[in-house]
């Protein structure tokens, strides 16, 4: 019994000292599910190279911004720029968010592989999400109602999609389904014959079919040279200009290793 108690005590002391130590040597990342995979491979690389613990949470860009404002993370990963309101809220709490673009990402419009449609124009996509085009046959597909899939409101991908395709003011139809991550959208689209959704280019694989937007298929080249219109930067946000280890972490995307990791994950390095 006493031995057990001692062991418990030891564990508690160990845990406390560990966390006290961690305050100095841990980098905490929180935010976008789009940036998540990149952040994770950076984290593994960084831990191996410098022996620093890096934790990555994926709770949506909005949550990342919130975490940075509440100082519960070191770096916020975001797939959209911070909003005015968020920056104002951060300033009020004495946090000064600084943006660092780490990569570019194309928003791929994806459909079920068995769907014959190959290309849509931006205005067609807008009408689909607005609810004015409701059947695939109106855009050259089979006679089936379109199952529209969007992301939930704290998603940076959703914000970018609205900004780049439908326009900020437009209301996405209430008939559309809402999924909570890139992975969930991919899952739904890959299993639902008449669905359409949007994904970060990094999440695209053979289970879904990427369609051309305005005749341009998204890939590394078209995203980099700007031919693919639905392209956005991905950000890391820090509180003030970073220094020391955090700066080294932020600079990773500029190193050849960092660029390699970004390309490997299907995103486009700067």
């Amino acid at each position: 019994m006493i031995q057990r108690l001692l062991l418990l005590l030891f564990l508690i002391v160990f845990a406390v000292s560990e966390t006290a130590d961690a305050a100095v040597k841990t980098i905490v990342l929180d935010g976008s599910t789009t940036v998540g995979p990149v952040a994770k491979s950076f984290a593994i690389y960084f831990t191996k190279k410098y022996g620093v613990r890096v934790t990555v949470s994926e709770s949506g860009s909005g949550n990342g911004a919130k975490s940075l404002i509440n100082s519960s993370c070191t770096i916020a990963t975001m797939s959209r720029a911070m909003k005015e309101a968020e920056i104002a809220a951060a300033r009020k709490k004495g946090v000064n968010p600084v943006a660092h673009v780490i990569a570019f990402d194309g928003l791929a419009m994806v459909i079920h592989p068995a769907n014959p449609v190959r290309s849509l124009s931006i205005s067609q996509i807008r009408s689909i999400y607005q609810g004015t085009i409701r059947n695939w046959k109106e855009v050259g597909g089979a006679n089936a109602r379109i199952v529209v899939i969007q992301r939930e409101s704290n998603s940076g991908t959703q914000e970018s999609f609205k900004e780049l395709v439908t326009g900020k003011r437009m209301r996405i139809t209430g008939n559309s389904e809402t999924q909570s991550s890139n992975g969930a959208v991919k899952n739904r689209v890959s299993t639902t014959l008449s669905s359409i959704g949007f994904l970060s280019l990094g999440f695209v694989d053979s289970s879904v079919k990427v369609i051309a937007v305005n005749g341009v298929v998204p890939n590394e080249k078209t995203v980099k040279n700007g031919a693919y219109k639905v392209t956005r930067p991905l950000y890391l946000y820090t509180n003030g200009q970073p220094s020391g280890l955090v700066k080294q972490f932020i600079d990773l995307p500029n190193t050849p290793e960092g660029k390699g990791m970004i390309t490997e994950l299907g995103l486009v390095s700067r």
Binding site: G60, K66, A85, A89, S153, T178
Partner: peptide, 22 residues
């Protein structure tokens, strides 16, 4: 047809809804 419920809305919208932002 797809629907949405009270509980799921609370869970899904909690993320960004905050005293600070609206």
């Amino acid at each position: 047809e797809a629907i949405r419920t009270l509980t799921a809305t609370i869970a899904g919208d909690m993320g960004e809804a905050d005293q600070v932002t609206g």
